[in-house]
């Protein structure tokens, strides 16, 4: 199981990156994260929504109410321009951290 702190830190970049691929909604986002991580990233489903609302407040994503296949209302989210910029910044930082860790790992076998 992934450490709590890492799950929390990765929530925002994951959501932004997923929304960059197109509009989506809460349930689908959670299922995708579970699937892509092979079940390692198990968010408490409800905890995604505060993250989505915070991102919306900060102007990084926008929401609209639409309908599901069964006709029930469903809230869809999409990435905004500021969200794309934030995502790029996250990408930069995660890449940097990963590069340092990978570099250290390489050295330890010398």
């Amino acid at each position: 199981m992934i450490r709590k702190e890492l799950v929390a830190a990765s929530a925002e970049p994951l959501v932004l990156a997923l929304l960059a691929r197109g509009e989506s909604y809460g349930y689908a986002i959670i299922q995708e994260v579970k699937a892509r991580s092979g079940g390692q990233l198990q968010w408490t489903d409800g905890m995604l929504y505060p993250v989505l609302h915070r991102l919306e407040r900060r102007g990084l994503i926008q929401a609209r109410w639409g309908e599901s296949e069964t006709g029930r209302k469903r809230k869809y989210y999409s990435l905004k321009k500021d969200g794309k910029a934030a995502m790029a910044k996250h990408d930069e930082q995660w890449t940097m951290v990963h590069a340092v860790l990978a570099g250290l790992k390489g050295e330890s076998y010398v």
Partner: peptide, 14 residues
């Protein structure tokens, strides 16, 4: 209420 609606929608789908 909109938050409750969103959570309920998730509950139903799940």
């Amino acid at each position: 209420p909109p938050t409750l609606d969103e959570l309920e929608s998730h509950l139903r789908e799940s």
